[in-house]
């Protein structure tokens, strides 16, 4: 039974909720607003929420001074490429863990996750040398591989939790119906788990897009994505705020917009299937 609440109470909670939400969102909002100000009004005291002299100047300047489209394209290729490759490797693994669990399945899953706990900095030099030696340094392929491996444990885990919700009888029915393992996965499992796979895809694209250690240390120019683009802007003092804000907005806007549109799917994915 749904309960009825007084309108008064609803107004109060609504006001409180919006207050808190705006507070959390404010830094992002402030960054976007600042990106449209002149450098002078960006540092004006007291701060101006809206300034009179709205300008697109900052964007124009960031655009002309750097090769934004190349960084953007690299980010797209690396984040989507690494996630798709990760899914291709993780789907069979998750199938195995969910439908043919053994005594060691849980340990295996936990081991996979624990590989993520190794501090990346600890293996920076070996990784750098390896990438140089293998010709992967500053290549998109190299970053696709690195980020795929970084996120693989998360992808496997998420898929595993989604697959576990699918009744095994359906896969057995497919087996009785003459489906090979390939057909079982392609025609039955994957379509049934599509919402889960979509959430996994989204979350990992975001994680890969926002990765800012390997993407910066293992690239120089050719394969550098937006995280490296923004790092190159991070020595600003004082008079540089508006342009910094514009560059920052440009770096996060694509994923922010994607995230807003897919928010429902994403929240489901964020819970890692562990919260029903």
């Amino acid at each position: 039974m749904a309960r009825t609440y007084s309108t008064r109470r609803k107004i109060l909670t609504t006001a409180a909720a919006w207050g808190v939400a705006l507070l959390i969102f404010f830094p992002v909002l402030w960054m976007i607003l600042t990106s449209f100000k002149t450098e002078a009004s960006a540092v004006a005291s007291p701060p101006q929420l809206f300034s009179a002299d709205w300008t697109f100047e900052n964007y124009a300047e960031v655009w002309s001074r750097s090769d934004y489209p190349r960084f953007f394209w690299n980010s797209v290729v690396i984040s989507i490429g690494s996630t798709l490759l990760g899914l291709a490797i993780a789907i069979p693994a998750a199938w195995s863990m969910a439908f043919v669990p053994g005594k060691r399945t849980k340990d295996l899953l936990m081991w996979m996750l624990s590989t993520k706990m190794m501090p990346a900095v600890g293996v920076l030099i070996p990784m750098y040398l390896l990438f140089q030696r293998l010709g992967l340094f500053d290549t998109k392929i190299g970053l696709v591989l690195a980020l795929m491996l970084m996120n693989l444990p998360i992808i496997v885990w998420m898929l595993y939790t989604y697959f576990k919700e699918i009744p095994g009888e359906i896969l057995e029915a497919a087996r009785m119906d003459g489906a090979s393992l390939w057909n079982e996965i392609v025609h039955v499992l994957t379509p049934m788990a599509l919402p889960g796979i979509a959430s996994t895809l989204l979350l990992n694209v975001i994680l890969a897009w926002n990765e800012a250690f390997w993407t910066i240390t293992l690239t120089t120019t050719k394969a550098a994505p937006l995280s490296a683009f923004i790092a190159s802007f991070s020595a600003p003092q004082g008079l540089f705020y508006a342009k910094l804000s514009a560059a920052s907005t440009m770096a996060i806007a694509p994923i922010l917009i994607l995230g807003w549109f897919s928010q429902k799917q994403l929240v489901r994915g964020l819970t890692f299937g562990a919260v029903k």
Partner: peptide, 21 residues
Amino acid sequence: LPPAKRGLAMVFQSYALYPHM
């Protein structure tokens, strides 16, 4: 023999229909 090669058909308790088809 694997299930598919035995020439048998099975009806499951949960029906095991493919929900996306």
